[in-house]
Amino acid sequence: MQIIMKKDEFREALLSWYHREKRDLPWRHTSNPYYIWVSEIMLQQTRVDTVIPYYERFIDSFPTMEILASANENDLLKMWEGLGYYSRARNLQMGVREVVENYGGEVPDTRQEISKLKGVGPYTAGAVLSIAFGVPEHAVDGNVMRVMSRLLLIEEDIAIPRTKKIFETVVMELIDRKDPSSFNQGLMELGATICTPKPKCLLCPVRDFCNAFHEGRQEELPVKTKKTTMKVIPVASFAIQNKQGEWLLRQRPAKGLLAGLWEFPMVERLDGIAPLEKMRQQFGVELENVVDVLTFKHIFSHITWEMTSFKAQMKGTDSLPPGYRFFTVEEVEALPKPVPVLKIWEEIKWEE
């Protein structure tokens, strides 16, 4: 690893570029630590363009930590609907409750204290501390590791968790202590817009300091071993109506995948049994007027669902599967639903 020698010139080049070229994002118009915390949680594993409207609606609905802390979980999940990774929302609410109850509603301004909060890892802690409080703390995410691996020719595998400590150390060595907010955001912005997986080196403001560029190795870095093959599960989902036009759904368990969200009956298709027969075996229901709706893939962090979906009517409703009940269209609209269910619902509701 080669250390940047002209640190002041590097900082100046990065900061002047950031102030000149940074994207106009709503969370960059505030130093409110709660708002910045919300934005950073939403931005985890989600594109900026997707996050912007969610962030704005969320802040409008929960403008203070006290309001979020006391919010009904259904309302919270409905506001998060479509963003995915719903545990982020629950952890955010639990962390905010800790701030309200244990810190008098003031977000802690030290890494030691803020890291105790639910859902606040090293990156989120550093981002909130540096952006909201101006504390010179590292905020190392995937973008920053990609930038620094090229700048300093760091060849350690970034897929190995302990490697992150190397990047945290070098960021702390380089960080601008007068303006750590702009420095950290500048590195993030550089990784998001210029030093991308296919780098745009001719546009890079710190190209002169980049060891990988000078050696023609920028596309070799960062080193990242591939994940093991993701498990693929074929599933069939049935949007089932009764004679009154109501829809059959259940709430998923409070823990586990898509916890607490509402879904149509769904069966796995790993054994080759036809979906209708599987529904009969698993749920004890007889269906009629079955029509295809959508076929699509939904990718989680560890599994992929190969979704086949159907619309159908139930023959009689004397006995419902345990946990399921019928809802009107308006009630279904109000329920927090995961993305796969949203896709199916958006397709079928216009047919009514």
Rank of each mutant, 00 (worst) to 15 (best):
L261Y: 04
I303S: 07
S237P: 00
P205T: 04
V232D: 11
K231P: 02
P338Y: 14
R280W: 02
M314P: 01
G245D: 01
G316K: 12
S301Y: 13
V332I: 14
P340H: 08
A334F: 05
V235H: 03
E286M: 04
E331V: 00
A239V: 04
P336K: 06
V267Q: 00
L335A: 15
T317D: 07
S309Q: 04
V267K: 00
F326I: 15
G272Y: 05
R250Q: 12
D271T: 02
T225E: 13
L202P: 04
M314S: 14
F300S: 05
E306F: 00
A312K: 13
A236S: 15
E333L: 08
T228V: 11
M279A: 05
P340N: 11
L202Q: 06
K337W: 08
C210Y: 02
E220N: 08
W262P: 04
T308P: 01
S237Y: 08
K255W: 00
E286T: 11
C210P: 02
I240P: 01
K337P: 06
E306K: 10
F327W: 13
T229K: 11
Q281N: 15
W305K: 03
F209P: 05
C204H: 03
Q281V: 11
E215S: 12
S319H: 15
T328A: 15
T295L: 00
A334D: 08
E288N: 10
L258Y: 01
E331F: 09
G216Y: 13
G284W: 06
E263M: 10
L248G: 05
F326G: 03
K243F: 04
F283A: 13
P322C: 06
I240W: 02
R280H: 09
L257Q: 12
G216L: 12
C204T: 01
N242V: 13
M307Q: 08
F326E: 06
E246G: 06
L320W: 09
V206W: 02
L258P: 00
I233F: 04
G284Q: 05
N289R: 10
A274M: 10
A254M: 03
I233M: 08
G216N: 04
K243M: 07
K243L: 13
T317I: 14
L335S: 11
N211L: 06
T304H: 02
L320T: 05
K278V: 02
E306L: 03
P205M: 01
A236M: 13
S301A: 13
K311F: 05
V329W: 01
K311A: 15
E333Q: 09
